[in-house]
Design a protein around this nucleic acid. Structure first.
Lengths: 217, 217
DNA sequence: GTCTATAGGCCGATAGAC
DNA sequence: GTCTATCGGCCTATAGAC
């Protein structure tokens, strides 16, 4: 197995060849659903409706195809920002619940879980994939959250002696504490909206007790 | 692929055939290091120093061998208890740091991570494995911790209006918040003793701020 | 660029001798 | 029980016609 998967961080200029998109789409679906090893190039070609030779004309190897896909996927592993990090808030709780809800829901999405599963499982064969996923997903989410917490700290909303980095990590940890492990293992039943809301509210509650400058109770 | 992996929770009466142990040991090492799909029965036989025919004489299929191994592994996914749950403590902090340190160190062990990786990656092909791992590992650890927290709550050490279940989940979440994600992805550098101690101290600090009955600061 | 057809190898699993 | 030898199949990857 030679790793000509190239750099995993460059989405690359994918021109608009329809067959190429068919192949990439088919491959992504199969890889995410079944993992790297369980997917054959035959299956990719069949699903995409092309011949294997065409597949190999576009992608030098199975590893290269996989690497290119994961690069695309990893660059989209951030939840939409929108108004998730408001500079000024009257109360920290609703802002944290919005941020936490969006973040946890994003991490419980099947495509996020699928990439996480594959990045973990293939971290030996494709260390670049694990690194790229981590750097493009969790690390960036954490950095944004840390900066926002520091901002709120400067505004007097967060305990002055807290470290924003730790506070951000603990917020993520609390959000992941209940439903995440089950979800990664694919255990039924899948979390529903009410479960997620409850988990987020609990995490925010604990976080505020530990990090809010002014305990509001 | 037929799943005659049988029940994953019964370690089964493995008699003391030396060759059988060689095969099981070889298979466990290979599966944990490389995952289910990447390991061939040829490799298992070669590593164990037996022929493939002998391997198949003992295990009906690759799936059966894998299932038997994971059943053994999953039944050992609890950290040693020792004096981790003392009924009466003067101060909650050192008890939590001992419990948290032992728990986090256990979850960062390469064999625990390897089983977690495989349970995740193969949760589609082997749903029983994911269930067994979860039930024998995280669920039991959480239950013990929850009961101990309830005990401490009754002793007046923990906030009276806290739910022990949530408090236990949040403790685990806080412990996993920093080093765990990196470790699951196999990202260097591996966590060292000092890193772990710092993570545990931070987690316990946040937990105590949120759940201690008597904030001692 | 895309196809059909196939090379060449490794895999899981088995037959049969001892 | 354990071995050697091998089967049939699927895999990645390629050759050659169009």
């Amino acid at each position: 197995m030679h790793h000509d998967a190239a750099t995993l961080d460059a989405p690359a200029a994918v021109e608009a060849s329809p067959k190429r998109r068919q192949m990439l789409d088919a491959a992504r679906g199969l890889f995410l659903a079944q993992g790297y090893g369980a997917v054959s190039m035959d299956a990719v070609a069949r699903t995409a409706g092309v011949s294997k030779a065409t597949l190999y004309a576009h992608f030098a190897s199975k590893a290269a195809l996989f690497g290119m896909l994961m690069a695309e996927g990893c660059s989209q592993m951030l939840p939409p920002e929108e108004n998730l990090f408001p500079a000024e808030v009257a109360d920290l709780r609703p802002a944290l619940e919005a941020l936490g809800g969006r973040t946890l829901r994003f991490m419980l999405r099947e495509d996020w879980l699928a990439i996480y599963r594959i990045a973990m499982a293939e971290s030996v064969r494709f260390p670049e994939l694990a690194h790229s996923f981590h750097a493009n997903g969790p690390v960036r989410t954490l950095a944004r959250t840390r900066d926002w917490i520091a901002q709120q700290q400067a505004a007097g909303k967060v305990r002055a002696d807290a470290e924003p980095e730790v506070a951000a990590q603990h917020l993520m940890g609390l959000l992941r504490s209940t439903l995440f492990l089950r979800a990664t293992l694919g255990l039924p039943p899948a979390a529903e909206g009410a479960d997620i809301d409850r988990a987020v509210a609990g995490a925010v509650d604990t976080w505020l007790r530990a990090f809010a400058a002014d305990p509001d109770r």
